[in-house]
Computed example of a mutant assay.
Amino acid sequence: MDVSGLADSSPRQEGPARGRPRSEAVEHAIVEAVVKLLEEGVPLAELSIERIARTAGVGKATIYRRWSGKEELFVDVVRAAEPPEPELPGTSMRDDLVALLEQLRRRGLMTRSSVLLHNVYAQMKSSPKIWTAYHATVVEPRRRLQVEILRRGQRSGQLRADIDVELMNDLFVGPMLVRTVMRPDADLPEGLSEQLVDALLEGLRPASSPPVSSQPA
């Protein structure tokens, strides 16, 4: 599991810095300790802060200075192993939607190719506290971004205004989630994100509007 991006994605405390400066090397060692334990087959329920600290060669206080608890730490480990958050092109609504779906497609490919990551997701969903933390810090911000892009499309007249924007978001994200989560044998070819977005925009565009792909975001 690649955790090299954790130092940039881990939570930062607000307000003036106190004590010694944060050490990216220490944070990396802590995350590597979590990954090592998971690779050894230690169940998520048995990953205590004490055990993680002992494996990383640090004190428990070192971990608690960076994360409030196991749930927050584990979410950062998973987030660092996923594809990076997409940089939206900003050239059009269509291109931004493609970028968001492409991140889901790549995440699906990574989950299939990594036995460890697949097991991590399965265990995470069985832990309500960790799944809630993951949903609040990763899933929900992505959903809000998707919905805002679609709202802009409605305000600019690029999308039909008679369809609830939350439902519209489900129409875009749903097919990719079906292929990546519910149908692990389904193909995830390059170009799938573009195909899904273009097919949906064709049906969601107001009858009098020009093609969405030619309009700015």
Rank of each mutant, 00 (worst) to 15 (best):
L6V: 14
A7G: 15
R12P: 04
E14P: 10
R18I: 10
E24L: 14
V26L: 11
E27Q: 15
V31R: 08
V31P: 01
V31T: 13
E32W: 08
V34C: 02
L38R: 09
E39M: 12
E39I: 12
G41D: 00
V42H: 11
L44V: 10
L47R: 04
R51Q: 10
R54M: 13
V58W: 06
A61R: 14
A61M: 15
I63T: 00
R65P: 07
K70Y: 09
E71K: 07
E72D: 07
V75C: 01
D76P: 09
V77S: 07
A81T: 08
P84S: 07
E85R: 09
G90D: 03
G90M: 02
T91F: 10
S92P: 01
D95V: 05
A99Y: 02
E102R: 05
Q103T: 13
R106I: 13
S113M: 11
N119M: 10
V120I: 08
Y121R: 08
Q123A: 09
S126Q: 15
K129P: 14
K129G: 13
H135W: 12
L145I: 15
G153Y: 00
R155Q: 11
R155K: 14
S156Y: 05
G157C: 01
D162Y: 06
I163G: 03
I163E: 01
D164R: 03
N169H: 14
L171W: 09
L171K: 07
F172K: 04
V173R: 10
P175F: 02
P175K: 02
R179K: 10
P184F: 11
D187Y: 11
P189M: 15
G191L: 01
S193G: 12
L201H: 01
G203W: 02
G203A: 08
A207W: 10
S208P: 11
V212S: 04
V212P: 03
S214D: 15
P216V: 03
